[in-house]
Computed example of a mutant assay.
Amino acid sequence: MNGFALGAEQEEWCGQLRALAADRLRPLADKGEPGRVNRPLLAALGELGLLERVFTSGALELCLLRESLAYGCTEAETALALQGLGAHPVLSSGTPEQRARWLPEVRAGRAVAAFALSEPGAGSDAAALALEAVRDPGSKADADGYGGADGGEGGGWRLSGEKCWISNAPEADFYTVFARTGEGPAAKGVTAFLVPADRPGLSGEPLDMLSPHPIGRLSFDGVPVGPQDLLGEPGRGFRVAMDTLNRFRPSVGAFAVGMARAALDATLAYTAARRAFGGVLGDLQAVGHRVAEMATRTEAARLLVYAAAGAYDAGSPDVPRRSAMAKLLATETAQYVVDHAVQLHGAVALQRGHLLEHLYREVRAPRIYEGASEVQRTIIAKELYR
């Protein structure tokens, strides 16, 4: 990459990904049920080696991957990203046993991962989470390896409470769960655990949401976890969560840019061909100026996303600010572009199954998840005043 221009090989790879998404992954997505995990789609992502790249790519390559898939098949992009989000804490903070058990299955698309941070009363304010991990010093590790251990490790914990708006819930095979263990106040008392879905006391239900990907609620009724289930150290879970979010925030922006570019290209094609008022729509100054604004904002968002990803790959100290800026601008831009694309298409874009009808439902959620736009502005302001 030269400055903010992609190299010839990167451009070729992105083109191949867009074609792959449209030709190979889109048909599998269309066969899936909205709001449900699409396991055949995940298996295809694994077979194609794309899930592997989530864990081996740098931040910029991950952005190019997500942007290109989003252009051709948003469901494939989201399925891939959720695997990364749920399993990245295992890669970064898991034990050798946890990595050996779960990561090969995630990479192959056979195991579904989920990132369980948000709660009914702790969405944007992640440090305020209330899921409680109560010490259970008398418990013993059983055949499944949870519930505590002897040999000086002490007992385990019991998780009680609720998680909400969890992507891939309740169908995931394991959850990265963040709970309050109380080593300190607020973020200092949060611990990360790897919780398989078959643990006793863990249940869930799907939520009927605007966006088509699976989202659900989880209930923890004394779910047993032991030292073997820790991701990192007790009381250090908030850092695990923030490291994961900082890794993926620029690529959330890339997802948004991919949708914006798809909407922009569809609008260019439509307004260049649609006849009205003695010519085509694109001849009207009001239309041309609107499309020019859409294109300019999309390009600005793309460049900011790439810059944030480059900063992450370079180990820059200003990654939190850059990542927040990239996610903020890209998701707000995508909302603007898709909305105006619908307006320029007129009623045809409101038909169920139209690309823009689909994008209109998809584009709203990224302004909220992984830190709402208001949270990104708060992060940016704090970093500027630091």
Rank of each mutant, 00 (worst) to 15 (best):
N2Q: 14
F4P: 00
L6G: 01
G7K: 09
E9A: 15
E9D: 15
E12N: 02
C14W: 00
L17P: 05
A22H: 12
A22P: 06
R24C: 03
P27S: 10
L28P: 08
P34Q: 04
P34E: 02
L42R: 13
A44K: 15
A44E: 15
E47R: 15
L51H: 01
R53N: 01
V54T: 04
V54P: 04
T56I: 03
L60M: 10
E67T: 01
A70Q: 05
E75W: 06
A76P: 01
A76C: 05
A76W: 10
L85D: 01
A87E: 11
H88N: 07
H88V: 11
P89A: 13
S92H: 10
G94Q: 07
P96C: 08
Q98I: 11
A100Q: 15
L103A: 03
L103V: 00
E105D: 05
V106D: 08
A111E: 09
A114P: 08
A116I: 01
L117T: 03
E119D: 06
S124P: 00
S124G: 13
L131C: 03
V134T: 15
D136Y: 07
D142A: 06
Y146D: 04
D150N: 02
G154N: 06
G155E: 11
E162V: 14
K163N: 06
K163E: 08
C164M: 14
N168K: 08
A169L: 10
P170G: 01
A172F: 08
T176M: 11
V177T: 13
R180A: 11
T181A: 12
G182D: 14
G182A: 13
E183T: 11
E183N: 02
K188T: 01
G189F: 13
L194H: 10
V195N: 06
L202F: 07
G204D: 11
D208S: 10
S211W: 08
S211H: 14
I215T: 12
D221A: 15
G222K: 10
G226T: 09
G232C: 08
G237Y: 12
D243F: 00
L245R: 12
V252R: 02
A254I: 06
A256H: 09
F277W: 12
Q285I: 04
V291E: 04
E293S: 07
A295C: 00
A295W: 06
A300F: 03
A300C: 09
R302A: 14
L303V: 15
A307L: 11
A309Q: 05
D313A: 07
V319F: 11
P320W: 11
R322D: 03
S323L: 03
S323K: 09
S323M: 05
L329C: 01
E332G: 01
T333W: 03
V337N: 04
L344H: 03
H345N: 01
V348G: 00
V348P: 03
A349W: 12
Q351H: 12
Q351F: 02
R352L: 10
R352H: 08
G353I: 09
G353L: 11
R361M: 05
R364E: 04
I368T: 12
I368N: 07
T378W: 05
K382E: 06
